[in-house]
Amino acid sequence: KEKCNGTAVWVAQIERVRDNKDRQAFAELFGHFAPRVKGFLMKSGADAALAEECAQDVMATVWLKAHMFDPSRASVSTWIFTIARNRRIDILRRERRPEPEDLPWGPEAAPEQSDVLALQQECQQLGNAIKDLPDAQRELIEKAYFGDMSHSEIASETGLPLGTIKSRIRLALDRLRHVMK
């Protein structure tokens, strides 16, 4: 059931957490995303205990900030990814992450349903498009996100020349852009 309209299902679960403090909906979100966040953090160099701790923290943030999730701007996995990423910078590097200032037109009214639908569909499409990438391109994109590594660090780990990595990532992005058009 998650495969065909997964992104819309998760949006509904977040809204149930936000509006009704629905523990069942949260448990389902937790079951799906917590292990992914934990895997993400371990890939980035955290040990199992720290990754467990952080993943719990990220999921608690999902509950506590459910009212700040805007489904016309992000899928649930995108939103959780950004929370996990910022937590990783905070915990593993002990750095702040500067964020851009709020847009000058300020807080918006409830998003239009058509905008929500369009964005969630795009995210679903993007997910499918990544799965269809050639393995070599997909792996480099994943490395760029999972490992706390620059392109030159990826180069020394994979043994690929930096130019090859950059051009493969470019190629992957071009392909994704093409699919998304």
Binding site: G39, A74, I80, E139
Partner: peptide
């Protein structure tokens, strides 16, 4: 960011099992 979300959602990097009391611990947080 959306690309990062898609990578988190569905990736060759295996999800890691959470501790058995993980959900309860999160509710406590």
């Amino acid at each position: 960011d959306a690309l990062g979300g898609a990578v988190l959602e569905d990736t060759i990097a295996a999800p890691m099992d959470m501790a058995s009391d993980s959900l309860e611990a999160t509710m406590a947080r």
